[in-house]
């Protein structure tokens, strides 16, 4: 109940943020301009629209999660609104989870809006509603939940600018972690290989949530791959949230 109250207040605050609408506008522009790209490219136009559209959803969703998530806790401490909240009978973890779910709800609504624009654009070309696109979008949502938890973690101890840089680095590394996997295969055994293996297991692999190509190309995906990705998302998000709570519960609000 207390978590719900904080989550709804966070949601109310977030949907009044102009950055959100600015990003939503650019996301819509990107999705719609995919039609222009399709005209300039040789190949299946619809596939290009789907590719660009889904990538826009992922990128702008991540930017929303990072830019808003990194200010979530910092703003409360900076503006001292946290003083009157924490002095009430509420545990610090409840406050943090409330903030997390509030932003996740905001992102969910934004993703719905972006998906509507995207699916409508696809519909104008195929005259069918391609429901399987929703699978790719669902995994984008899982990815956004994870990014939100990371942004929240950094927000617990750092300024919004630094937190945004850290979170953006997390996002970029997360989408290039497969490069380390290739590196492991190519380098000879030794310190370098051990280090690469350590990094590969420690760093996030956000490509686990990337089913865009498979869905667009109508490729078969075994159900255990989906299951693995869902569990990976849930456990990684939980892990990051636990670290955030551990840091937050020891923090002095000066």
């Amino acid at each position: 109940m207390k978590i719900k109250a904080i989550a709804f207040n966070t949601f109310k605050e977030a949907i009044r943020d102009r950055i959100l609408y600015l990003l939503l506008f650019f996301a819509a522009v990107c999705i719609i301009s995919s039609r222009l790209l399709a005209l300039l490219t040789v190949g299946d136009k619809v596939k290009i629209i789907k590719d660009v559209g889904l990538s826009s959803l992922s990128l702008f969703g991540a930017l929303m999660a990072i830019l808003m998530g990194t200010g979530l806790v910092f703003k409360e401490i900076d503006k001292k609104t946290i003083y009157t909240i924490i002095s009430k009978p509420i545990h610090r973890y409840q406050f943090l989870l409330g903030k997390f779910f509030g932003l996740v709800l905001t992102l969910f609504i934004m993703l719905l809006l972006m998906s509507f624009i995207f699916l409508a654009l696809v519909f104008f070309h195929t005259f069918t509603i391609e429901w399987e696109m929703l699978i790719a979008i669902l995994f984008i949502f899982f990815e956004l939940c994870l990014i939100t938890s990371v942004a929240l973690l950094f927000s617990c101890f750092s300024t919004p600018i630094l937190s945004s840089i850290f979170s953006l680095a997390f996002y970029l590394i997360g989408h290039t972690a497969w490069g380390i996997e290739t590196l492991i295969k190519k380098i000879p055994p030794g310190v370098g290989k051990t280090l690469a293996q350590f990094l590969y297991h420690f760093l996030p692999d956000l490509e686990n949530f990337n089913f865009k190509t498979e869905i667009v190309q109508h490729l078969d995906i075994p159900s255990d791959v989906y299951l693995y990705s869902i569990l990976y998302g849930i456990f990684y998000t939980l892990f990051v949230l636990i670290i955030a709570v551990l840091i937050f519960r020891k923090r002095d609000f000066i």
């Binding site: 207040n9 109310k12 605050e13 009044r16 001292k80 609104t81 009157t84 002095s87 009978p89 509420i90």
Partner: peptide, 17 residues
């Protein structure tokens, strides 16, 4: 905490509410 109330110095609250 259930039995206490607190007004901080220079209070700043959620101004969107």
């Amino acid at each position: 905490k259930e039995k206490t109330g607190f007004l901080p110095e220079n209070p700043y609250f959620y101004d969107h509410l």
